[in-house]
């Protein structure tokens, strides 16, 4: 090796090292690099969720490595491994399923990268594998729908319930929360409860059958686990010659645009928001994590509840 070559090599190595040092330094102190793995793009809600995260990252000038898992856990695990290889500062993801995350989360922990879960939780034996879980509290959503109803009806209601897809977490939790909220009310009872599969068509079909049953005439409240089923049921109620929103008080969950339009038209009474716009909250948490603050294991998303009086004002700003 000639001396000249050696000195060049040393100079190059030095330059490289200093570059690497400064970039690492900047990343840690100023703008963290965040890797985010999304479930997919299966609904308008999910798309709004993605847009919110991407938009907020761009606004804050944060480098976001975004990966769409297309509903597959294996894609998501691949994405998480590539985040480790790229040595991002924080990893966030919405897990497709609850289980099977231990090995990859251990790899991430070994690499020293903090993990934030969004929207859905994971089942792991070691809770230190992730920093915090930020997502909607479905039980609380059901509870709020129930509480609103207790106030609205002064504890007197014959309720029909349109349940979500059997076995899904939102269906189980929203039912549980609602039942908790109306538990103390002797005048409130659920006389019909059936799955509408979270869809408009099934919501309508099931409501048609409810209304035609012998007890159907006494139904004066409808609780739907999501807005789409309520929107379908509204059509069934109209076809039965009744006034949705007046003859039958309707409360549902999600807060999609269609629900606000129905509220403005007086056909829906109340929707409990299930907020996908978590971008700002997520990147606040990222900043806290990078700054080394301790966070609670479970953080609820900031969510509102809207009735007809607020619907018209809120409608133009609804993004999903």
């Amino acid at each position: 090796m000639t001396p000249k070559f050696t000195s060049r090599l040393l100079a190059a190595a030095g330059l490289f090292a200093s570059l690497a040092f400064t970039s690492a330094h900047v990343a840690a102190a100023e703008k963290p690099v965040v890797g985010f793995s999304q479930i997919g793009a299966e609904s308008a809600w999910r798309t709004a969720n993605t847009d919110s995260i991407k938009g907020e990252a761009a606004k804050r000038g944060i480098t976001l490595k975004f990966a769409d898992a297309q509903q597959k856990q294996e894609n998501q695990i691949k994405a998480l491994r590539s985040f480790i290889a790229q040595d991002v500062d924080v990893i966030a993801f919405s897990p497709v399923v609850e289980t099977g995350w231990e090995p990859v989360l251990r790899e991430i922990k070994k690499a020293g990268i903090p993990v934030i879960l969004t929207d859905r939780a994971v089942k792991v034996s070691d809770p230190s594998l992730y920093v915090t879980f930020v997502g909607s509290d479905f039980v609380e959503e059901g509870r709020r729908a129930g509480k609103w109803l207790v106030e609205k009806t002064k504890g007197q209601a014959v309720i029909a319930e349109l349940v979500g897809t059997p076995g899904s977490a939102p269906a189980i939790d929203r039912k549980k929360g609602f039942e908790e909220a109306i538990a103390g009310q002797a005048g409130m009872k659920i006389i019909k409860s059936q799955s509408g599969d979270f869809t408009r068509a099934k919501g309508k079909e099931v409501m048609e059958t409810f209304l035609k049953s012998p007890e159907g005439k006494s139904i004066n409240v409808l609780y739907a686990h999501n807005d789409d089923m309520a929107l379908g049921a509204i059509q069934a109620i109209e076809e039965a010659g009744l006034k949705p929103g007046t003859d039958i008080v309707i409360v549902s969950i999600d807060g999609v645009k269609g629900a606000f339009e129905a509220m403005v038209a007086g056909k829906l009474n109340c929707t409990v928001e299930c907020n996908p716009l978590i971008g700002a909250q997520l990147f606040d948490l990222v900043a806290d994590v990078v700054a080394g603050k301790t966070l609670p294991k479970r953080i609820a998303v900031e969510e509102g509840i809207y009735d007809q009086s607020q619907a018209a004002a809120a409608l133009p700003s609804r993004q999903y």
Partner: peptide, 9 residues
């Protein structure tokens, strides 16, 4: 039937 196109369902 539901006055809308719900491509998912």
């Amino acid at each position: 039937n539901i006055k809308s196109a719900d491509a998912n369902h």
